[in-house]
């Protein structure tokens, strides 16, 4: 990475920062639109910017997932399932049994939602297992040879779930579903009552009046904590995993001994990470189901 010109020197710090910066398109403070050439520029764009790499990869992976499943679904036969259909059915049955185990109300949305979350998040996490330099280097090479941009200005972060926007985007979507179904199933009064009338309640009207704000603060915090913890857990795990992969990748540039040692480290961490990415996708899905189940339950 020839980063001398931008001030991001070829140091470990610069390398890490380069890897952790998204490919951003947005509005500069002076009003013109364009790609950010550095992390500082990306920051200066504020809210009116979009992470092209995150969107690109998440949509690509989503299309791969849905295309594969749609193909299996269209050719789904009752008598002789092919290999793809068997695989898809295995996943669908697994999701279906998980949903049935947790979710007791009647709602046709929950199972497809759980399937989408599980596979999509898994695929996004899976990008973490691709060696950290491959795709960014390729993007840098394409950027410098095809578009004539300095390779050090090409930022390419391949794991969408290490972008808080992606995880918070999903968590907020789930949160809106939880709010929608809470209000739909319990009514506005029931939902507000759930927020204000517990855990403390009293027969005495005066005391109850005192309890309402306390209850509201407690319940509101726990309500808001749901999407935040959901998003932060996934983001944090993937971010930490990515960070460790990057640190291991730095070892390759420090000589033979460390390079070989780093190779083993990367292999070990990748194998351990297979467990983490699956587990985190599963937990995201399970917690979504649990939250939706809570939204359907009357007290």
């Amino acid at each position: 990475m020839t980063a001398e010109t931008t001030g991001e020197a070829l140091t470990a710090t610069g390398y890490i920062k380069h890897h952790l910066t998204n490919w951003t398109y947005g509005q500069f403070p002076d009003g013109r639109l364009g790609f950010a050439h550095s992390a500082a520029e990306a920051k200066s764009m504020g809210f009116m910017a979009i992470h092209v790499d995150t969107m690109l990869w998440s949509i690509t992976l989503g299309i791969i997932f849905l295309g594969l499943f749609r193909m299996a679904a269209r050719k789904a036969t009752v008598d002789t399932p092919g290999a793809l259909q068997n695989f898809v059915e295995w996943i669908v049955e697994f999701i279906d049994s998980s949903v049935r185990g947790t979710f007791t109300s009647k709602n046709n949305l929950v199972a497809p939602l759980a399937l989408t979350i599980f596979i999509w998040v898994f695929l996004m996490n899976f990008m973490d297992l691709i060696p950290v330099d491959w795709l960014p280097s390729l993007a840098g090479w394409v950027g410098s040879t095809v578009f004539g941009v300095d390779a050090s200005h090409v930022y390419f972060k391949v794991v969408p779930s290490t972008d808080p926007n992606a995880t918070f985007g999903m968590a907020i979507a789930v949160f809106f579903l939880v709010l929608y179904y809470s209000v739909k199933n319990k009514g506005v009064g029931g939902f507000v009552g759930e927020l204000t009338l517990q855990p403390f309640s009293s027969e005495n009207k005066m005391l109850q009046g005192v309890f309402i704000p306390i209850n509201f603060i407690l319940e509101f915090v726990s309500l808001i904590a749901k999407p935040i913890s959901l998003a932060l857990r996934l983001f944090g795990n993937m971010y930490a995993g990515e960070m460790i992969f990057i640190l291991i990748a730095i070892m390759y540039s420090t000589g033979w001994v460390f390079g070989i040692f780093g190779g083993f480290l990367q292999l070990g961490w990748a194998i351990f990470h297979i467990l983490i990415i699956t587990l985190q996708a599963f937990i995201f899905m399970t917690l979504t189901i649990v939250y939706l189940e809570m939204a359907h339950q009357e007290h």
Binding site: M45, A49, I50, S58, N165, M170
Partner: peptide, 14 residues
């Protein structure tokens, strides 16, 4: 690490 329009884009995509 910046929160921006990607958030809304991801929600819509989702």
């Amino acid at each position: 690490m910046n929160i921006n329009l990607t958030l809304i884009g991801q929600s819509i995509t989702f």
